[in-house]
């Protein structure tokens, strides 16, 4: 599902339910979107893979809140962005594990590849954990194209633009589920 079509609001995942979202985003928006996911029933699972291709002056302001209310709930959010031109992301991810939500397993990752000097990334992946029996983690990274990869591609006769597209596509498809792979067209802006 395309992220820009998701409206602000809540998603409740009930007991034993398993929800998987896959979002491929090419167009930005201005007003921050606020999306809250509530894992309300025992054993609820939520997975969300997001791939963003930013270009020109697109902006992607997004607030994601994940609230683990019930025991043994699982959430996985993995967002990968490739930013070119003057595009920028401003992402605020907040994972809350409430008291009594034992056995929660959660991971939140924001990974960004910057292709231009004017692109900008601002990410705040925060965790608020109020019980001990949890496995909680988050990761964030911001990187540029690796010199050795650029060199390797150049030595194989690819020009810089082609290399950029190839590496950006590879970056977006890392860890992506099969359903997302089919949606990811070769990176092209």
């Amino acid at each position: 599902m395309a992220l820009q079509k998701i409206k602000n609001g809540d998603l409740r995942v009930g007991r034993g339910e398993h929800v998987q979202w896959v979002s491929v985003v090419h167009k930005g928006w201005r007003i921050p979107k606020v999306i809250t996911i509530i894992l309300a029933g025992q054993g609820a699972q939520f997975e969300w893979f997001i791939a963003v291709s930013g270009h020109d002056d697109h902006s992607f302001p997004l607030d994601i809140r994940v609230i683990h209310k019930a025991p043994s709930t699982v959430s996985r959010i993995s967002a990968r962005s490739v930013l070119d031109g003057r595009s920028h992301i401003s992402w605020n991810g907040r994972v809350i594990v409430e008291k009594g939500a034992h056995g929660v397993d959660t991971h939140l990752a924001f990974r960004t590849l910057l292709l231009s000097a004017s692109a900008r990334a601002r990410t705040i992946p925060s965790l608020e954990i109020a019980t001990d029996d949890v496995t909680a983690g988050h990761a964030a990274s911001v990187d540029r194209l690796a010199d050795d990869a650029l060199f390797y591609c150049a030595s194989r006769g690819l020009d810089h633009e082609e290399t950029k597209k190839l590496l950006a596509h590879a970056f977006l498809s890392t860890d992506a589920p099969a359903s997302l792979l089919s949606l990811l067209k070769p990176y092209d802006n």
Binding site: V134, G137, D143
Partner: peptide, 13 residues
Amino acid sequence: EQVSVAHEARVNR
């Protein structure tokens, strides 16, 4: 653009 930033966090018992 020319940066390398990595952040990792874990909460465990």
